[in-house]
Amino acid sequence: MYSKINISFTTFLALVTLTLVSPAMAEMEATHSPNLGNTPMEGTETFEAFGGKEGLVKIMDDFMIGLVQDPRTKPFFDNNKQAFIKAMLVEQMCELMNGGCKYPGRDMKSSHANMKVNREAFNALVEQFQFAMDKHNVPFSAQNKLLAKLAPMYRVIETTKGAAVPPNNLSN
């Protein structure tokens, strides 16, 4: 008898706790930057595999060099916004990998609104990112954990199945 009461009391307590805590948990989940484009990872193993924020900065430096060298992506990045884009990418990747950052930039749709990205350009960027990550010895599985967060963004970044149009050539 006593134990039965005890069980139901425990159940009651658990329910109350859940009711009180659930909204708080939901709030916690929603605390990532609204424009991040995907939910951040749970642990920090991937962030560490990238060498933390310091590692990310170096990777983005080489990533940008590759993007400007690649004729498929050059028209999108060969401009005076390189430093800004790199800084934004560092913050975005850092937050996606749960590295304690807050991405302050625009959402993926509006940040690509003044250009037309097709699948060729999107995949070319992925390839250049892979080269940069390889160069900095990011393990393949860690690369794919981040790419899995980024890949679905093709849905808003790609806006054409025809020819790609770089930012300078579209009036916004």
Binding site: K149, P152, Y154
Partner: peptide, 9 residues
């Protein structure tokens, strides 16, 4: 479907 890029579903 998109086997490669739809990594979130």
């Amino acid at each position: 479907g998109e086997a490669v890029l739809d990594a979130d579903t």
